[in-house]
């Protein structure tokens, strides 16, 4: 049951756990606030909220039962609860939360506009609705290290920036929040260093990755996969020996207020 959740953890979980506290700082959570973690996945954001804030209640909701089961095993804090639910049809009364946050989730919601209206609906007046996504413009080395290598072995590889419905830019997130009718909108770029101890630590998770990278990997023969590996290794280590290296991750965060 945890197979998909564990594959996500190996691939992106460590980075979403590192991004979560930066997102919490950007949003600002007051003592006693009730917080919804919409599209909570494996629970990185709920864990950061529990650790960093004096929120009175933290509710994580995700449509994937396997993620919810996994998240529940990771957090013992009694303020934190989880439900299986869909951001497009949130199972909460109007004005239930002081903060509604979605970390690295909006790209995966089929009708994201509907979801943003739902996020606004369940948030109290003067409460904050916020989200963050990885940058898709090429400035995020976690993303670009793969797609530069992919383009080197296959010029038709589009990369994640070519995907429909990608919200990984200041403009896209700002437009989405304006469309949701939120006010006092603020957008911020968030950068963080991702330290890796060897090339394999970066490469191995791709072998069972999901999403756009997984789809690209699945279409490769063993030879082409090896060529991709070598191109990626060249990108991050050059001709040097294997060892520690750092990639700069970049994300965008947006917050808006319910009027």
């Amino acid at each position: 049951m945890f197979e998909v959740a564990e594959a996500y953890e190996a691939m992106m979980g460590r980075w979403s756990r590192q991004l979560a506290p930066l997102f919490v700082e950007f949003v600002g959570v007051r003592d006693g606030d009730t917080v919804l973690d919409a599209g909570c996945g494996t629970g990185s954001l709920s864990a950061a909220l529990a650790r960093m804030t004096k929120a009175s209640k933290i509710v994580g909701v995700d449509p994937a039962g396997g993620f919810i089961e996994y998240a529940r095993t990771q957090i013992a804090d009694p303020r934190v609860t989880f439900e299986v639910g869909d951001a497009q049809n949130l199972p909460y009364s109007d004005a239930s939360f002081d903060r509604c946050m979605a970390l690295l989730a909006v790209d995966y919601i089929p009708d994201v506009r509907r979801a943003t209206l739902e996020m606004r609906r369940v948030t109290k007046t003067a409460g904050v609705v916020a989200t963050a996504m990885w940058d898709r413009s090429g400035a995020n080395e976690l993303d670009s290290c793969f797609w530069h290598a992919a383009a080197a072995i296959d010029p038709t590889a589009k990369g994640s920036s070519g995907r429909r419905g990608s919200y990984g830019s200041a403009e896209a997130l700002s437009d989405l929040w304006i469309g949701a009718g939120l006010i006092d909108i603020e957008v911020a770029g968030v950068t963080m260093p991702c330290h890796l101890s060897s090339f394999d630590q970066l490469w191995q998770p791709y072998l069972r990755s999901q999403g756009a990278t997984g789809a690209f990997m699945a279409g490769l023969s063993a030879d082409r996969r090896e060529a991709l590996r070598e191109a990626m290794r060249q990108n991050v280590l050059g001709d040097g020996p294997d060892g520690r290296f750092t990639l700069q991750a970049k994300a965008w965060a947006v917050r808006g207020v319910v009027s």
Partner: peptide, 10 residues
Amino acid sequence: IQDDIPVMLI
């Protein structure tokens, strides 16, 4: 409610 988790999917 499955294993104490509400499944709130229409």
